[in-house]
Design a protein around this nucleic acid. Structure first.
Length: 889
RNA sequence: GCCUUUGUGUCGGAACUGGUAUACGAGUCGCACUUAAAAUGCGAUGCCCGUAAGGGAUUGAGGGUUCGAAUCCCUCCAAAGGCACCA
């Protein structure tokens, strides 16, 4: 029997065995309570590193724990396989995107995810670039088309020159492409396909309140992204053209008496119409200049305000004031009405603009109710209305309401809600994506492909030149099609879908992954959905999570699913960072930073269990984790410590098949101190305490894997102490109520254990069994191996059943999660802290559950306390049960 | 500029609803085993004063609430992230 812990010898063996046994298969419509555990599926880029492994480890531990708790667990995996890198690899290395993607998937699945010891139900694997999958992506899009959620419009769009395609607003960060932070996004006017996500703005916003299991910051980010502003629309009639009105949106209708000008965005079509001949040249130049500016330049807040007057004027409907119309690029055409009213006294931007161009500044809200003379800055706080006609004297909050009402009654506007969220631009001028199932007919216009003609298959025989648009546009045979409407000549849409569409419904397909008739069976989806626990990176706080919420609501309205929200609970794990020798800083693990730790080498050297444990132990899941070789080796040592102890006990016939010790325990195992000596009692107590603590740590409220492992380490330390003392060598002393060993050696001593009482050995066996069960979700291979070797597997049977080699092997991963007895989780003696004025003076051992009276008496009898309170009368004595007595003098 | 989060030993981090600050691990040191090293087992280890017994300060800084604050409140400082001319 080898006593060396060698993960290589056990890990692959068990991975194969688990697959054989099929213990990770989810069962549709099972009677057990369901638990849908989901992890954001990866893009098959080719090679996962330890940084990637964190999210899979966390999600896997949750799944395994739930399985042991008796849930019917769905823990699936798949591939977000359409996307640019595949296409770029095709251009660069002359590989077809399909073969490149497929070989990456094979490697990542078989050599990386499986070797991590994950518990996926691979029968439900999905791959978004498989025609069996994207067939249904197209089908879903057609459903949305029927609902009027898909439309084409010509609009200024974000163009990334590096990707050679347009991007959605959500994919633009700081004016640059989300994939190419160095590449400034250009604005282009193009006819593009959009998904009407704005039809769901309010539900998307309101239902954030339902997401109690989401991190607050994610909800907040979505809320900010949706950007609801409640205000009013006000209309200003053009003085020279009474039939032309300028509509502005404002959140501050209360400041309308302070309007000293109105500004149009340079792109506003009214600019041309309202510019007087003498201002024409200046305005045209200004508009031309601002078009040349990049989005990024225009967005910088701290640059000087620019603008030119149009020469026209408008009438303020409230007070009849005549104010000039300006053009300025601080007003954006894409938000609100593309026109704003300028109130310098109460808006910082307007204040800067008015100062620069010497426009009047009229104060209409004052904190004191009196005009404060010359303002040095805009006053944006609340106050009392002044200089505002009939509204004077009101609070500005009241005035907001009353003035909006007034505008509505006088045909000059009314209440209006404005959102920042805009429709989702979904077309991409790229090849490696899901074809859009629409055709362009000369006669009929845009016509959807008939359902029975789906899928529109992406042709594989195309040429990749890397220049001049999508290869689809050059594939004449694919391009030509007869119109589904009139049968006449028509042309396929050459744009493909944004890959975020593929990932907006993949979690539904897992419920019924192999269905060839429909996208998914509604019954199955309704059984599994919503996802009970989703785990993924914070980078998708807006993008993927908002899109998926939208899809779920839209599909619900198509009658295809029943839930309102797809993901009940969300865990956003932190990044894995490591010191980079390139930058000299601690940075996110990535190839370009040269700080990656590969999986294969690590698994070979220390095993997947050690990798998993370190990832879980080094930091709480939401926090950043710094990879450290020493720390990881520490976990390898911990596993070795368990391994050696169990092997020694097996060799000594204290455990395992050769022993007479009881191997099968009920859910709570040994649940009484009866007949135990002090050593066994202490060990049993630590065991129950550990079961309680780990159970609590793994619960959703905490997901505190790091402390769960720490608790297991304490149990192992206690076990070593027990073996040493009970074995004969060394003596025992009590420290904090727990027996600990001093001296003695485990290896030699364990053979002495054979002479221990059966009762002691039973406690030891129970304790070890509990340890293995608690650690099983986190270190699945080692725990399974030792569990089987000890013969704990045949629980419930008479113990003679075939174990290794037989068909009836009961894996630890389907064993029942251990229970505990509350009374046995604490020692009967506790340390009572004695304080004077909140300072610790003394400590003393007392019985657990000591009464207030007794505790106080004990405190006043304590020598150190006596000395401290001597000659003073206690004002107050505070007692906290089983914790402390505090004497206030 | 606005919003959010986080500041605890040499390092990663514990301390759940205010009640023994520094669990667990890493590192370092010592002892045992060994011809030796590694591995392993055992022990020590936040800081200052002290030979010791013991004492003192301490959870980014300062203040407050409380018998008692890492934890609650206020101000400030630092770091990370999000939003950013959104009217």
């Amino acid at each position: 029997m080898g006593t060396q812990y060698n993960p290589q010898q056990i890990e692959e063996k068990w991975q194969a065995e688990w697959e054989n046994l099929g213990i990770y298969k989810a069962i549709d419509n099972d009677s057990r309570p369901k638990f849908y555990s989901l992890v954001m599926f990866p893009y098959p880029s080719g090679d996962l590193h330890m940084g990637h492994m964190r999210v899979y480890t966390i999600s896997d531990v949750i799944s395994r724990h739930k399985r042991m708790l008796g849930f019917n667990v769905l823990n699936p995996m798949g591939w977000d396989a359409f996307g640019l890198p595949a296409e770029n690899a095709a251009i660069k290395r002359k590989l077809h995107p399909e073969s490149w993607t497929k070989s990456n998937i094979k490697y990542m699945r078989d050599e990386q995810l499986k070797k991590l010891g994950t518990s996926y139900d691979w029968d439900r694997e999905v791959n978004t670039c498989d025609v069996e999958y994207y067939h249904w992506t197209q089908w879903v899009l057609l459903k949305f088309y029927e609902k009027g959620l898909v439309y084409r419009k010509s609009a200024p769009v974000n163009w990334c020159p590096d990707c050679a395609t347009v991007l959605a607003n959500e994919q633009v960060e700081n004016g640059a492409c989300w994939r190419h932070p160095e590449t400034t996004v250009e604005q282009k006017m193009m006819a593009q396909w959009f998904l009407k996500i704005t039809a769901y703005t309010e539900p998307l916003l309101q239902d954030l309140d339902l997401l109690k299991g989401w991190p607050e910051r994610v909800c907040l980010m979505q809320k900010n992204w949706i950007g609801k502003s409640v205000g009013a629309e006000l209309q200003f009639t053009v003085e020279s053209k009474p039939n032309v009105k300028i509509t502005v949106f404002t959140t501050r209708p209360d400041t309308v008496f302070g309007v000293s000008y109105v500004v149009l965005a340079p792109e506003n079509p009214l600019v041309q119409e309202l510019t007087t001949p003498e201002n024409k040249e200046a305005v045209e130049n200004y508009v031309k200049e601002s078009k040349l500016k990049s989005e990024l330049d225009r967005m910088t807040t701290d640059k000087d305000k620019t603008g030119v007057p149009t020469g026209s004027f408008v009438v303020n409907p409230f007070n009849g004031d005549i104010v000039p119309i300006w053009v300025a690029d601080y007003v954006l055409m894409s938000y609100g009405t593309g026109a704003v009213m300028g109130v310098p006294a109460h808006d910082e931007r307007d204040f800067a603009f008015a100062k620069k161009f010497n426009l009047p500044i009229t104060e209409v809200i004052s904190p004191t109710g009196e005009a404060s003379g010359e303002l040095k800055a805009a006053y944006t706080e609340d106050g009392t209305m002044i200089n505002s006609g009939n509204f004077n004297g009101l609070s500005n909050e009241e005035a907001k309401q009353k003035m909006t009402d007034w505008a509505a009654q006088n045909q000059s506007g009314g209440p209006r809600v404005q959102y920042r969220l805009r429709d989702w631009l979904i077309s991409r001028q790229r090849y490696w994506g899901c074809p859009i199932p629409l055709v362009h007919c000369e006669k009929c216009g845009v016509v959807p492909v008939k359902e029975q003609d789906l899928p529109v298959v992406l042709p594989l025989d195309v040429e990749f030149t890397g220049e001049g648009g999508s290869p689809l546009g050059k594939n004449q045979a694919w391009l030509d099609v007869s119109c589904p409407g009139c049968g006449g000549p028509a042309r396929r849409e050459t744009d493909t879908m944004d890959t975020f569409i593929d990932s907006s419904w993949y979690f539904l397909r897992y419920a019924d992954a192999k269905n060839t008739k429909v996208a998914f069976d509604k019954k199955k989806v309704d059984y599994w959905m919503p996802v009970d626990q989703y785990v993924g990176g914070i980078e998708h706080a807006i993008l993927h999570l908002l899109y998926s919420r939208f899809f779920t609501k839209a599909l619900r309205d198509c009658g295809l699913v029943s839930c309102d929200e797809p993901f009940t609970n969300l865990l956003s794990q932190g990044m894995v960072v490591k010191h980079s020798t390139i930058s000299g800083r601690i940075e996110k693990m990535s190839k370009s930073r040269g700080n990656v730790v590969g999986t294969t080498d690590f698994f070979k050297k220390y095993g997947a269990d050690a990798a998993r444990l370190f990832t879980l132990f080094a930091a709480p899941p939401e926090q950043e984790l710094e990879w450290s070789e020493e720390g990881a080796v520490g976990q390898f040592r911990f596993l070795g410590r368990i391994w050696r102890m169990v092997q020694d006990l097996l060799d000594a016939n204290v455990l395992g098949k050769g022993s007479k010790t009881k191997k099968y325990f009920g859910k709570t195992g040994i649940s009484s101190f009866e007949g135990l000596n002090s050593n066994s009692k202490a060990l049993l107590q630590v065991t129950h305490k550990t079961i309680k603590a780990v159970t609590d740590d793994l619960s959703r409220e905490r997901f505190s894997f790091n402390t769960a492992i720490a608790r297991c380490m304490e149990l192992v330390n206690a076990l070593y102490g027990f073996v040493a003392t009970s074995g004969g060598g060394g003596s025992t002393e009590s420290k904090g109520g727990v027996a600990v060993a001093t001296g003695g050696q485990s290896g030699a001593a364990s053979s002495d254990l054979a002479n221990c009482s059966e009762k002691d050995k039973e406690v030891l066996a129970f304790s070890i069994r509990s340890l293995l069960l608690l650690l099983a979700p986190m270190a699945p291979h080692l725990c399974e191996e030792l569990y089987q070797e000890c013969g704990f597997a045949a629980e419930g049977s008479d113990g003679n059943g075939s174990q290794n080699g037989g068909a009836t092997i009961a894996s630890i991963h389907v064993a029942e999660w251990p229970g505990f007895v509350e009374e046995l989780t604490t020692a009967d003696e506790i340390e009572l802290v004695l304080q004077v004025n909140g300072k610790i003076i003394s400590k003393t051992m007392v019985k657990r559950g000591i009464s207030e009276e007794e505790a106080k008496t004990t405190a006043f009898e304590d020598e150190k306390i006596k000395k401290k309170v001597e000659g003073q009368t206690p004002k107050k004595v505070i007692f906290v049960k089983d914790r402390l007595v505090n004497i206030v003098v």
